[in-house]
Simulated scan of single mutants.
Amino acid sequence: MADRGEINEASIVCEVPVELIFTDIDVKSSQTEHLIEQFTEAWYEHHLQYSNISIMRFAPHRELYRYFLGQSASEGTYLDWYSKIYTTRGLEPPMSPEEILHQRKMEFINMKNELYNQSLFFSEHPILASYNPSGYFNIKDGHHRASFLYCCGFRRLYLAMSEENYEQWMNKGQADVVQEIIQTQKRQLMYTPILNPAFYSWRSERDEIYPTRLDYMLQYLGPYHLHEHRILDIGCNIGYHARCLTREGAEVTGIEHDPNHYQLLQELNRLERTHFRWIPEPFETTETERYDIGIMLTVFYHVMKDERVCGTFLSKLNASISHLLFWESGDEIEAEKKLIMENTDFTYYEKLADTFGTGKYRELGVFLK
């Protein structure tokens, strides 16, 4: 439960998209190192692994609640996390694995009952957070609540923040600019979500219902920091996935040649205070650079039937991505996979999920070199 002393009359409580909710900042960056009893570098390394990452990638808590919900998960990651909080400082954990698991199970049942009874518990006991200038919120208290609600499929969670933080996030002047562009382009719906309250009423074609494509990709990537990774988002549309991975610390480049998409993309980057490099031309004509990770969602099927363009596209793809490619199919799943495997150096494919979007059954997976 959040410290009610910190949630005062000046605090603003509102719903925040789960994509913008990150774990706490590490104690050295926040200068709270002195508050840790028997601080050790081993403890700090353990703490740092899970600091300042999306709550969607906070594996110990996420897997604990997936386990309680009867999903395909294990409690082991959480128990290991809990144990190391103490053992890395030479301390004995105050509760045994059985005891901590029982306590968390009781809390889980209570939270689940609050949801079932449609109570105001989660709005009256919001997650305490502070706004990060990089365009997201860091939790100060409420990691378990956030992880529980995320695993239950909630896409927006109640956060308590300062009025200054609220105004920064709202970015009202820029929200008005985005609204004007949407009206000028006569858009009726968005392909992917816009993570600002001014646009909550807009329905999104994709990535709106848990688990989304982003959920699957972040779970696959695991909790490790992406700061030294270069990512290429091919056909990034209005930049939703590119912005999400930029917040995770990756160096992201987006490819998008549709002028309406990249006009809106630029202003959304300013609205969400999350900036990535973008290239406004077709992927097959771009200058070849090397990236660790590629994202290619519902893109390849647009070019695969044009033999000349397809060959150039695959050659460029092979030269650009050095390790891993997230891919989502069009309407010929096996034909796409076959072309990629036979015309690139990707040697392994793993299916992540069956997906559905814009009227088509699709497949989401990852190719590895």
Rank of each mutant, 00 (worst) to 15 (best):
Y65F: 15
K105L: 15
E289N: 01
V18I: 13
S96N: 10
Q179F: 03
F199E: 13
H34A: 11
T184N: 05
E164Y: 10
I209Q: 11
I321R: 03
H229P: 00
Y262T: 15
A198C: 13
V27W: 07
F199S: 12
D24Q: 14
E45L: 15
G311P: 08
F276P: 00
Y50T: 04
L195Q: 08
T298C: 13
M161D: 00
V366T: 09
I234K: 05
A175I: 06
H102W: 11
T23F: 06
K360I: 01
P126N: 01
V177M: 11
E267W: 02
L91K: 08
H225P: 00
V303S: 03
C244I: 14
L232D: 05
N132V: 07
R270T: 10
N165V: 00
L317G: 09
K360C: 00
N237E: 08
H46F: 04
R203S: 14
W202N: 09
M95C: 11
N237L: 00
L317Y: 12
V303M: 04
V178N: 06
N110D: 14
M161I: 12
L339P: 01
V177T: 14
V299S: 03
L339I: 12
Q263C: 11
R156T: 12
W43L: 02
D141S: 10
D215A: 09
T347D: 05
L189A: 13
I333S: 08
R243W: 02
K338D: 13
F148S: 04
V178T: 04
A129Q: 10
M341L: 15
W169E: 03
E332T: 10
G365M: 01
G135S: 08
E248P: 00
G76Q: 13
K105N: 15
G70C: 05
S329C: 12
W327Q: 05
E75R: 03
M341H: 02
L20F: 09
H143G: 02
L264R: 12
N8L: 10
Q185G: 04
Q103M: 14
G254Q: 09
Y301S: 13
V303W: 03
E205I: 07
I139P: 00
L226W: 01
E114Q: 11
G365T: 05
H275V: 09
D176P: 04
P280T: 07
S54D: 06
T77Q: 09
Y44T: 07
T285C: 04
G294S: 06
D3K: 10
L268D: 07
Y136W: 01
I181R: 09
C244T: 12
E163G: 01
R89W: 08
E9D: 11
E19L: 10
R89S: 13
L271C: 09
L35Q: 08
S11P: 15
